[in-house]
Design a protein around this nucleic acid. Sequence first.
DNA 1: CATGCAATCTTATCAGTGTCAAGATTGTTT
DNA 2: AAACAATCTTGACACTGATAAGATTGCATG
Lengths: 185, 185
Amino acid sequence: MSEKTYHHGNLKRELIEKGLAYVCEYGAENLSMRKLAEVCGVSSAAPYAHFQNKEDFLIQAQRFITEQFTEMLQECMETVKDKKKILLELGKRYVLFFYENPSYYHFLFSHGRIELTEYSPYLLFADIAEEVFSEMGVKKKARRKKMLALWSMVHGLAGLTAMKGVLEGDDLEKEIEGILNAVEI
Amino acid sequence: MSEKTYHHGNLKRELIEKGLAYVCEYGAENLSMRKLAEVCGVSSAAPYAHFQNKEDFLIQAQRFITEQFTEMLQECMETVKDKKKILLELGKRYVLFFYENPSYYHFLFSHGRIELTEYSPYLLFADIAEEVFSEMGVKKKARRKKMLALWSMVHGLAGLTAMKGVLEGDDLEKEIEGILNAVEI
DNA sequence: CATGCAATCTTATCAGTGTCAAGATTGTTT
DNA sequence: AAACAATCTTGACACTGATAAGATTGCATG
């Protein structure tokens, strides 16, 4: 495990994991490829065997988080049987995911790097929302509006909680629930 | 005006203005102090007479935008007489402000640089919202929840529109209005 | 097994960046 | 006019992203 061999063996994966840990601790703007290489005990040019450039690394690291986010939402969908409560539950998880790692929110949505036109897991929530509204018999135009309103609220609340000092309760889950329930959609 | 003197005379202001223009065109991550100095026709160390460091420059540039944002909201408040429509109108302006300059949204909210605990103009919207709810007779606890829900939605919608491809209509103003009206607060 | 190939890693090296110290130039005050 | 503070330049340092050339290794093919 800790043998020093010429070939690292698992560098790409370790770069991403250590990189994300670094982002969480020191912020994305302080992450450098060289420091990252050093942390992984490898020369400063080694990462460029796995990533075209820094931008490419950041994109792949974002995808890594994105996958976890998607899995979390999908797992949530399967556990919640009550179709009526599913939107609330998904929203709560959406917000909590980024509350637990505020750095991820900034890291993901900061640089306009993420395209929302193509399919992206962040649309997952939007898709589910639209589906639920559809089952509730809401018509297409209104459905899209409701979906965007809900998605905006959830995404916005995630952003606000990722900033300092907006939400501070002992029972955050209840607090989020209360906010999301404060509007009639 | 375009005389080349040793003392620039208005450098601090020009650095901020040209800096923001640069951010809008090429993105905040490509802005460097040296390039900025060059654009202003001044040596690379000159900016450091006006700003402690890059971070300090960014903060002051953010304040510059923040002031415009605040003025815009306040002007909006004065023109709209109907108290019931004021929240919708403010929300619309909030979103449109960042739609017109998506770079500003990323520039302002990306780096966790902005503290929302202390008084910040972004709380202005929240403050007004809470006031309006208060006049509507909503009680304190519920009022706060409604306020946060509305603020989240507006702020989130601003964020989504600042990304590519979420909102694309001929009449964007109507579209935003429709979305904000899709929920009963 | 050995030979060759492709992947991986290292060692320079380059241009660009943030930042500072020292000194030059200027506006302002006394 | 002289002194001072503000402003700007030059020159330097360490750090960064990135590339080219070469070293080391795993693996497939004969």
